[in-house]
């Protein structure tokens, strides 16, 4: 399972990096979103993968899931969600004001 999760994070990160290097605002926004998904997943597994274990103390238990990464990832999700909404609006405004969805706002030289 560790390998599967690591692969998922790696693929999400690679796609995120590739898309955020594109020249149009929409792929860039998608890329940033994928990057934030990747990092949220990464934060979540920093407490190690444990199956069927509670994050709070319970009588008769000896294996626990680490509760702190769960709290961290909640914070990170909220922030990345807010920032995605902001960057979408900003990209729309740039499209409206610059007349183009190129990140530099210049008419693309079509070959």
């Amino acid at each position: 399972m560790e390998i599967l999760v690591a692969l998922v994070i790696a693929v999400l990160t690679a796609c995120g990096v590739y898309l955020s290097l594109r020249a149009r605002t929409f792929p860039v926004v998608l890329g940033l979103t994928l990057l934030s998904y990747a990092v949220n997943l990464f934060l979540f597994v920093t407490g190690r993968l444990v199956l069927g274990a509670p994050p709070i103390i319970e009588a008769g238990r000896s294996v626990y899931a680490d509760p702190l990464p769960q709290a961290l990832v909640l914070t990170a999700i909220v922030i990345s969600f807010g920032m995605t909404a902001f960057v979408v609006i900003l990209a729309l405004r740039a499209r409206a004001e610059l007349g183009d969805d190129h990140v530099d706002g210049e008419k693309e030289m079509r070959r």
Partner: peptide, 28 residues
């Protein structure tokens, strides 16, 4: 200003993502 703002926001979002990767590694 909008164009400069878009660049600024995007690069700082990438920076925040890297920050979280580093923090996660240290915690791990």
């Amino acid at each position: 200003r909008t164009r400069a703002g878009l660049h600024y926001v995007v690069i700082n979002l990438v920076g925040s993502t890297l920050f979280l990767f580093a923090v996660g590694t240290l915690y791990g």
